[in-house]
Simulated scan of single mutants.
Amino acid sequence: MGNAQEKPSGSGAARSDQASAGSGARSRGGGGADNPHGQRPSQKGVANGTRTGINPAGGGQEERDRPAEDTSYLDAPAGALPPHLARFKNEGNHLFKNGQFGDALEKYTQAICGCAEAGIDSPEDVCILYSNRAACYLKDGNSKDCIQDCTKALELQPYSLKPLLRRAMAYESLERYKMAYVDYKTVLQMDTGVQSAHDSVHRITKMLIELEGPEWRENLPAIPAVPLSVQLQHRDKPVSIELAQARAARAVQDEVRKKESQFTLLKQKGNDLVKNGNFQEALEKYSECVALKPDECSLYTNRAICFLKLNRFQEAKEDCDSALQLEPGNKKAFYRRALAHKGLQDYLSASTDLQEVLAMDPNVREAEQELEAVTGLLRQSLMDNTAHTPRV
């Protein structure tokens, strides 16, 4: 779908194409209405009695040297369509890709009318033309005609994915949520990797619950059961790069959501277990959390409490060290490491950490009390060491 302005070779070319082709030919000095045979005049322009490289049409050397636009895509095969109708379809595709939806719509219409006139018996090709024209209607905000074309496409090729998806989007834009829901669910029976359908089903479900309450499903039209043969046919189709990327992104998102949910649940269980004094079980929950999110500082300070309560002071100290590597100014980590140092009878280190806590917040009453206790223990240990040191 793109932006070719060449006149198609078929007899049904639009006037706008003829006009643009003619004006384009004149600007190049080639054959148009004024020069039907497309021959370049042999005479070169003369300025001030001197021959120049300027042609009579006014184009300079740079314009003459410009490479012609590649329109070879117009003659690409298009299913069972004859060449002149294939050109309409190919030009419509090119125009659509370049955002010229109105012009693309005209080309698809010419192809559809041409198929009817020629009696083309190719449901798949005509289905694609209706589906493509429906996409143009959808882009231009004409949801009603989009629905009509999608329905016609589905009559030709039942359970065709793109017309179903486009019709669902058109229904949703018209706030016909039940019909949209049915089409989206049908799409997902054929391809569970269509993320837009998943998102839309989730969104519409919320809307219908708000509008009709918990019994909203009872008022839904019947969702057609897609035959297994059709499902397998869609699954066996080669996956495009875009679809593969979309599926991979969705899988990553799903994994992130799953881990986040699991993490939140485990952490809450750990917190509840600490409140109830079940420190060993809480420790296990926090350890599972650490495996999921090793960069979460609070996990280490929480697990340090459990180690302290279980008199596992070295492990409590190590968890506080990890927390302080992640957050060097973490007050809880300093305080709990001081308690671990105290348990390890390293009173000097305990005193240093407690002073760090009080430097950050002088109002921490627990730190003041622990510093007083640790200072006494440090003084006693120094006295004991002095008493047992032999005099020389």
Rank of each mutant, 00 (worst) to 15 (best):
F307C: 05
Q5W: 15
K152L: 04
E218R: 05
L326W: 05
P8M: 11
L154G: 05
N385D: 10
E370G: 06
H94D: 14
D70C: 06
V182Q: 03
A33I: 09
K258D: 12
T192S: 07
H198M: 05
N142S: 09
Q231K: 15
K152C: 04
R312Q: 13
E242D: 14
I204C: 02
L339S: 14
W216D: 03
D321E: 11
A170K: 00
E63W: 05
Q314F: 08
M207D: 04
A14D: 05
T50P: 00
K331Q: 13
D254R: 08
Q314R: 12
A78T: 12
N90L: 12
L129A: 09
Q262N: 03
V392C: 00
S122F: 09
P238D: 04
A316W: 08
Q314D: 11
T386I: 04
S261P: 00
K342D: 15
D75L: 13
D384P: 00
R257E: 15
G30C: 06
E218T: 15
M179I: 03
K206Q: 11
L165R: 07
A248V: 07
G12N: 13
Q18S: 12
T389L: 07
Q325W: 00
P67S: 04
L348N: 06
E63S: 13
L283S: 10
D384I: 13
T205N: 00
Q39R: 05
A246Y: 01
C113A: 14
M179C: 12
R176Q: 15
N311Q: 14
Q195L: 06
A118M: 06
G99E: 05
R336M: 08
K317Y: 12
Q18Y: 11
F96S: 10
E372H: 10
A350I: 09
R336H: 07
F279M: 05
R365Y: 12
C127F: 02
Q18W: 13
L74M: 13
S122L: 09
K275C: 06
A373I: 13
V256T: 13
F313D: 03
K206G: 01
S131R: 04
G60W: 01
D321C: 07
K331W: 00
G29D: 06
V252H: 11
G99D: 03
P158R: 07
V374L: 01
A246I: 10
P41W: 02
K152I: 11
T389N: 01
Q325C: 03
P77A: 13
C306T: 13
L299T: 10
S23I: 15
